[in-house]
């Protein structure tokens, strides 16, 4: 232990001083935070009277947790959200197992099936489940819906766009370049605003679309443009020999890409894909600007409750921790992907 300390913190006199100063700074900065968040904090109760005011009032969060997680989803139906989450987790789990990747068709099929099943569970209106309109969706559940649908839609679309951008057909290439650069060049907030209030102006009179659906379309197209650029990076890294070999085997354009080029290209860019996914997950918060209540929107709405005024810090910290937990675990998962032996190395030779 002392040996470790000496090597890590005190390799030399200058470093030693720096370490001591840093330690002091950490203690000075973190002590009040720890005290506020844990030691003096109030955890249990139902009203603001249960908070002493000395530290954080987590009662605010625990009293509202139902809304934060499920939004205005009817209380008697919330089990459906839980089941959907479980089913989604089970459906997606094989994507993260090395062995399962030997049969990608099956794995992606399973994931797709899980998505459809989840959607049916959440919307209802069939199998004796009461219909729950999307305007009652909210909180973490809505955040996850936007993120998952956005990822599921933008991934294949992004691959198609990337292939289109590398196509030899000038018209197709031009269109894909224009599409990608257009979406990447504008802020998501203007895209969402357009999707939320201007889309109906573009559609023929009487045609209608759910507000959430419109937001989902906006988010998916936006993310697809970013995904396309990541995938293009992977495609560029594939040596020409691979294309020639695939061609020599008699594989056509689509089969050579599906069986030879894409599996290699995608492996190269796993970190980029995960980064895009994390970005998308964080960007879901912007839907609050167009009046959908995601986790952050729900927290903000709760902050204006006259009974709980003045607990904005607790609310934002809670939302921050939730988002952090999701994004951080995703980035760790991607590290595991990168480090897995055999993946990513076998095809560079």
């Amino acid at each position: 232990m002392t040996g470790w300390l000496r090597v890590r913190l005190f390799p030399g006199p200058v470093n030693g001083v720096v370490s001591v100063l840093l330690l002091a700074a950490i203690v000075w900065a973190m002590a009040p935070v720890v005290d506020w968040a844990f030691i003096s904090a109030d955890w249990f109760g139902t009203t603001r009277a249960d908070c002493s005011g000395a530290g954080a009032c987590w009662v605010f969060v625990t009293a509202r947790i139902g809304q934060f997680l499920y939004g205005f989803y009817p209380e008697t139906e919330r089990w459906r959200v839980d089941v959907a989450a479980l089913c989604l987790a089970l459906g997606l789990a094989p994507l993260f197992m090395a062995r399962a990747m030997r049969g990608p068709g099956l794995v992606f099929g399973l994931a797709f099936g899980a998505l459809v099943l989840c959607g049916m569970l959440l919307i209802g209106g069939a199998f004796g489940l009461p219909y729950v309109p999307t305007r009652r969706w909210g909180g973490l559940m809505l955040t996850l819906v936007v993120a998952v649908v956005g990822i599921a839609a933008s991934f294949p679309l992004g691959i198609l766009l990337a292939l289109g951008r590398r196509s030899r057909l000038p018209v197709l290439r031009g269109l894909c370049v224009a599409f990608i650069e257009l979406w990447r060049g504008v802020p998501l907030i203007t895209v969402l605003f357009m999707a939320s209030v201007m889309l109906p102006l573009f559609l023929p009179g009487g045609a209608e679309m759910d507000k959430l659906l419109r937001a989902l379309i906006g988010v998916s197209l936006f993310a697809a443009a970013y995904m396309a650029e990541v995938v293009r990076g992977g495609l560029q890294a594939i040596p020409v020999g691979q294309y020639e070999a695939a061609s020599a085997l008699g594989l056509g354009y689509w089969r050579s890409h599906a069986l030879v080029i894409l599996p290699q290209a995608l492996r190269h860019v796993v970190p980029g894909i995960v980064n895009t996914i994390i970005g998308l997950f964080k960007d879901t918060t912007l839907v609050l600007v167009i009046g959908l209540f995601d986790l952050l929107g729900m927290v903000q709405a709760a902050l204006t409750d006259p009974n709980w005024l003045g607990y904005s810090l607790e609310g934002y910290v809670f939302a921050g921790v939730m988002f952090w937990a999701f994004c951080f675990s995703m980035s760790r998962l991607s590290l595991r992907f990168e480090r897995r032996p055999g993946v990513g190395q076998e095809d560079t030779a």
Binding site: P133, R135, S196, M198, L201, K211
Partner: peptide, 19 residues
């Protein structure tokens, strides 16, 4: 009756567009 919460900024566009 269904209610769509709108900011004042969105409201006219939402009505004009048929949302």
């Amino acid at each position: 009756a269904r209610f769509v919460p709108l900011s004042s900024k969105e409201s006219f566009t939402a009505l004009q567009s048929g949302a």
